Simulated scan of single mutants.
Amino acid sequence: MAEEKQFYMTLEGKEKLENELEHLKTEKRKEVVERIKVARDFGDLSENSEYDAAKDEQAFVEARIATIENMLRNAVIIEEDNNSDTVTMGKTVTFKELPDGDEESYTIVGSAEADPFEGKISNDSPMAKSLIGKHLNEEISVQTPGGEIAVKIIDIK
């Protein structure tokens, strides 16, 4: 049997997934079942777009439930590391693009909770891979889709 993928996440990220799972199982499933019942009453199912849409949504909800259950079953909680001068998962890193770029801050999290719009990047991203293990005030090169950039780590929390 193949080893299942581990999903790294913070305790906050795990709780967020547990809440989403609870919502999908207790509320969303019931809503979709109700939509299917109503759509059946519209007549011939072979030409019923409401029924097809409701069944598609049901498949999406069930797939998302299975995905979340798998992620939670294989969750690895990112432990808090008190070493404040080394970049690790769970830390927020502020860096400055060299020579005179803007400051940017990102929290490095597992792919399950990555959301660049919230300042959370996946540990699998090129930026995070380049930062992990580096130290405060270290200058590094990062390969990005737009080309290589140089950055200096100016804060780690």
Rank of each mutant, 00 (worst) to 15 (best):
M1V: 09
E3K: 14
E3Q: 12
Q6N: 09
F7T: 02
M9K: 10
E12S: 09
E12T: 11
E12P: 00
E12N: 06
E12W: 02
G13T: 13
G13P: 04
K14W: 02
K14Q: 10
K14H: 03
K14G: 00
K14A: 07
E15C: 01
L17R: 10
L17F: 02
N19R: 14
L21T: 12
L21D: 05
E22H: 14
K25Q: 15
T26N: 15
E27H: 11
E27T: 13
K28M: 12
K28D: 06
K28N: 09
K28V: 13
E34H: 12
I36R: 04
K37T: 13
K37I: 11
R40F: 04
R40Q: 14
G43M: 07
D44P: 03
L45F: 09
S46H: 11
S46W: 02
E47A: 09
E47D: 11
N48Y: 02
S49C: 00
E50G: 10
E50I: 00
Y51I: 05
Y51W: 11
D52G: 06
A54F: 00
D56K: 15
Q58W: 04
A59L: 11
E62D: 14
A63T: 10
A63F: 03
I68D: 05
I68G: 08
N70I: 01
M71K: 08
M71C: 00
L72F: 03
L72V: 10
N74I: 07
V76A: 13
V76P: 04
I77N: 03
E80P: 08
E80Q: 12
D81F: 03
N83G: 02
S84Y: 13
D85W: 05
T88H: 07
T88E: 10
G90H: 03
K91N: 07
T92A: 15
T92C: 08
T94M: 06
F95N: 08
F95M: 08
E104R: 15
S105M: 05
T107Y: 04
T107K: 15
I108M: 03
I108G: 04
V109T: 15
G110Y: 02
D115A: 11
P116S: 10
E118R: 15
E118A: 15
G119S: 09
G119L: 09
S122W: 05
S125M: 03
K129N: 04
G133Q: 02
K134V: 10
L136E: 02
L136A: 01
N137C: 00
I140H: 00
S141Y: 03
V142E: 01
G147H: 04
I153N: 08
I154N: 09
D155H: 12
D155L: 07
I156G: 01
K157V: 14
